[in-house]
Design a binder for these strands. Structure first.
Lengths: 189, 189
DNA sequence: GATCTAAACGGAACGTCATTCCGCTACTAT
DNA sequence: ATAGTAGCGGAATGACGTTCCGTTTAGATC
């Protein structure tokens, strides 16, 4: 049960390089980017890729988790650097960036492949607490209306960021911006 | 612009056999069934398959259209054979069967592949008129409540037929049945 | 620093697909 | 019956994911 010799330094380096390379390749060519291409971009052989990620899908989930983590971890940092409401708004923008990044990744998620079943939960488990703390702080400071539910806001922003099928809304209307303003505008009671 | 020599009889026969074989293979192994397998099941070579359907996706769309057509064409037949309300109910059951058939096919539809962009419209264009005529007849006969919108009913039944993620509703409750009963129960005014 | 050993590595090789190509087959008009 | 051509079959190609194994090398020991 104890970790034997921890891990060789080059192995760790290669693993990081692989995740990074995969992130780039997925962003550039979609989640279907060939493993060979990713290995090459990371400067390793395919054998190395497959030792770290026995299945292609393992690499996909690793990238997903990595990006979710990065997004979640940004929350405390912003909370420390900015005023409560600015931290919140900046984080929501950061979150929409994250959503935009994973274009094809969303397709993979709902592809029915059981390899990805755990990801939606991971998404919620990591991001809801992050957003909740920002909301709580901002609410306590009186910067936003009270009673906003983190999970619902997460989903609302996600669906507003989703590409509209064709010409639903005027292209250029910043729906997320409207939503954020809505947060700030406390309802007269 | 005119059709040259119409088409050779064996070609037509092979094309039908291919669509039929593909339907079986898709039902049995999902939409990812290999072209070789489909060609073999149809008793033809892969070359023949590719002459008729230059891309794999062309075969998928052909099967989809074929099944939509079969479903739509059933409406007038039922209308002639049965009482208005029975025709309607029977057709709705037929429609749910169709929905069940294309398990994996739905995944393909929303896979983002532009080859399938036209299919949702085809679905609506074929099925809405079919259902509308049944609804109109039944409504005129006073068998169902008036004012039911065909497109909405189509979507409602589809979403009720969709597999529930986990344990939403009691497994065994026939939601579509409830809906149909709802049609018959005219609201007291 | 030299030596040793197992962790890691790289990339050729394999199996499975979709798709292409082209010499042969067999409809159909004459 | 014959010719001309639409249509056919299936080997070949190329792109993948994944496996295998001989070689390299980090890092522990002396």
């Amino acid at each position: 049960m104890s970790e034997r010799r921890p891990q060789r330094a080059d192995a760790k380096r290669n693993l990081d390089a692989l995740v990074e390379a995969a992130k780039s390749c997925f962003a550039e060519s979609g989640v279907d980017a060939p493993t060979r291409t990713i290995a090459e971009a990371a400067g390793v052989g395919v054998g190395t890729l497959y030792r770290h990620f026995p299945q292609r899908s393992d690499l996909v989930t690793a990238v997903f988790r990595h990006e979710v983590d990065a997004c979640a971890d940004a929350a405390p940092v912003l909370a420390e650097e900015l005023e409560p409401d600015e931290a919140l708004v900046t984080w929501l923008r950061r979150y929409t960036d994250f959503l935009g990044t994973k274009k094809g990744l969303g397709k993979a998620l709902h592809s029915g492949d059981p390899a990805f079943d755990a990801l939606p939960n991971y998404f919620v488990d990591r991001l809801v607490p992050a957003l909740t703390s920002l909301l709580t702080t901002a609410e306590a400071a009186g910067s936003i209306r009270p009673g906003v539910n983190a999970k619902e806001l997460l989903y609302a922003v996600a669906s507003l960021s989703a590409p509209v099928d064709s010409e639903n809304s005027a292209p250029g209307t910043d729906m997320v911006g409207l939503l954020i303003d809505g947060l700030r505008y406390a309802p007269q009671r």
